[in-house]
Amino acid sequence: MAESVQLHELAIPEVNVSDALRHSAVVRVTHWITTISFLALLLSGIAILLAHPRLYWGETGAREGPSLIDLPLPFVLDVPIRGPGRYLHFLSAWVCVLTGLFYLLYGFFSRHFRKNLLPSKDDFSWRVISPHLRLTRPKPEEALKYNGVQRLAYIAVVFVLFPLMIWTGLGMSPAVTSVFPWLATTFGGQQSARTIHFFVTIVLVIFVLVHIIMVFRAGFIARVRAMITGRVAAAKEHS
């Protein structure tokens, strides 16, 4: 029983996502660009990780020394995996970063964050601000709970997890840390940054999985279509 309650809570944020996206082509476009670049980053990140699937803490760490975690993965040093992995990682990282910056600027200036992501003290007043949102909610009384969970999850992804990924990614670069040493030292060093980069990836993958489960719970085809075209929500509004 308790489980089913939780799943309901997870599903409601999805309702709001699609509604929010319907109102903004920017959010929809950046959502899908980020989706593609995240997938590319994940796959190429795995290719890069496989060159040395051990994690350390602090400034240094190497095969000859003690590790924090030995991941149960093989050491794969084949150039055909490593070379393209690096191409793809840096290409999609830039796509992701530039898309993210555009999204952030848009989010602040269009008040998207304030209106759609900032958890409101009073859900009722928020419904007054955007009455159309209620039309796509299967059960309006559930929507109140989902709202908070969804907002917090997206705030965490946008303002904590993605910035952490970029930060720790830059913290692994010898040239960048020579200009901004604090990028690595804040976490305790190069290897700490690498380890955090790995674990934030895990958190993001869990987020994506839960996110997809929620989309299924809310109706996969309708939700995905709403995220691409916004047509579902708009049609309901006119009916």
Binding site: Y87, F90, L91, W94, S178, V179, P181, A184
Partner: peptide
């Protein structure tokens, strides 16, 4: 296309690189 990301990285880091900034 794939190389574009790396080329942009190289370009950005060349802009960033200064002889006065020392590695730790």
């Amino acid at each position: 296309l794939l190389k574009g990301g790396l080329r942009f990285s190289d370009w950005a880091s060349t802009r960033l690189f200064r002889s006065g900034h020392l590695a730790p």
